[in-house]
């Protein structure tokens, strides 16, 4: 079952929708007035409570916006597998809100510590190896069977690299798509953060090359975000605390030229702006996406004007 490029909401094809991450301080404003966004993304775990006011809030949100469920704890690359209770909670939530998209990350979270089961509480990086690919394949297969639908898997920003990796991240993700039929959520900010932290070349160039290695039809969503600048030689932390960076906007244009219109989300989790500022970011993304779509019908020499958007 495909959830990509087929659903129609408010007259929009899913592939050209633009949304924002909806976080608690914005609930009231998001629910009060009409806004220009096509969908909101919520973190699945924030709505796991089956009682209290949380389910009612989610109902209200779902009445006003199509919802994308973005989970942060599934740990699709966990060698010990995915916790069964967690998966059942996600399934119940998914059945309740029938989200337009469900996504999580190419990371691991479940493991053991001193003989006890543990959840890392963070998105921990994978080694890109055949063995981890096999683990990831089995886990994604299982999740898609339990949820009864396709999921999107997001590339990670990571702060350590493993010497055990023997394939590239794009080879790993491409093969995962081939084996499971899952889609990809490409987080452009994560690409930039990784390039800054681990590449000697220009981050934009490194990230663009990364994009070129992906199978075009597999990309079901793009995340845009910003990060707090750091001093030279320090690692950038993917804190989602700033407006979408200029680099990220630039990479977004590159991605749209390569993939065509793709569902796009502004991800801003910390140091939250006002609701109108967040919506402005979404408006900018929509303008760029429209421009790129138009560009397909104009000579290449006129491309320059699009970069000014």
């Amino acid at each position: 079952m495909s959830c990509l490029n087929t659903a129609h909401t408010r007259g929009e094809t899913l592939s050209s929708m633009v949304g924002v991450g909806l976080r608690h301080p914005h609930y009231k404003e998001a629910l009060l007035g009409s806004s220009s966004i096509d969908f909101v993304e919520v973190h699945a775990e924030n709505f796991f409570a089956e009682g209290g006011i949380v389910p009612a809030i989610l109902d209200d949100i779902a009445q006003q916006y199509p919802i994308s469920l973005h989970s942060t704890s599934m740990g699709l690359g966990s060698a010990v597998g995915i916790n069964r209770d967690y998966l059942q909670r996600l399934k119940r939530l998914s059945q309740k809100v029938t989200p337009i998209l469900i996504s999580d990350h190419a990371c691991f979270t479940w493991s053991n510590l001193n003989g006890n089961a543990v959840h890392a509480g963070d998105l921990l990086p994978l080694e890109f190896s055949q063995q981890n690919l096999q683990v990831m394949t089995e886990n994604v297969d299982k999740v898609q069977q339990v949820l009864g639908r396709k999921i999107l898997v997001e590339n990670l920003s990571s702060y350590v690299e493993f010497r055990f990796s023997n394939m590239s991240e794009t080879e790993f993700l491409t093969e995962l798509v081939n084996r499971t039929g899952c889609g990809l959520l490409v987080d452009l900010n994560n690409l930039i953060v990784n390039a800054h932290n681990f590449s000697d070349e220009s981050s934009l160039q490194t990230a663009s090359q990364w994009l070129q290695q992906l199978p075009t039809g597999a990309v079901g969503e793009i995340h845009l975000a910003g990060y707090t600048p750091v001093a030279e030689n320090e690692l950038i932390i993917d804190d989602h605390s700033q407006p979408v960076s200029d680099e990220c906007w630039s990479l977004y244009r590159t991605a749209l030229k390569q993939f065509g219109a793709v569902t796009t989300l502004i991800e801003w989790d910390n140091n939250l702006p006002s609701w109108p500022v967040l919506l402005d970011q979404a408006t900018k993304a929509r303008s760029i996406m429209s421009g790129i779509t138009i560009m397909k019908n104009v000579p290449m020499s006129e491309e320059g004007f699009l970069n000014a958007i």
Binding site: S78, A79, V80, F108, S111, N112, L113, N114, V118, A120, D122, L124, E127, S129, Q131, N132, Q134, V135, V160, F162, F164
Partner: peptide, 19 residues
């Protein structure tokens, strides 16, 4: 098995983080 080895390596990273 290779799976066991991967499990151990993931455990090792968690142990370092929780250290």
């Amino acid at each position: 098995s290779e799976l066991d080895i991967l499990c151990r390596r993931q455990e090792a990273l968690i142990a370092l983080i929780f250290s």
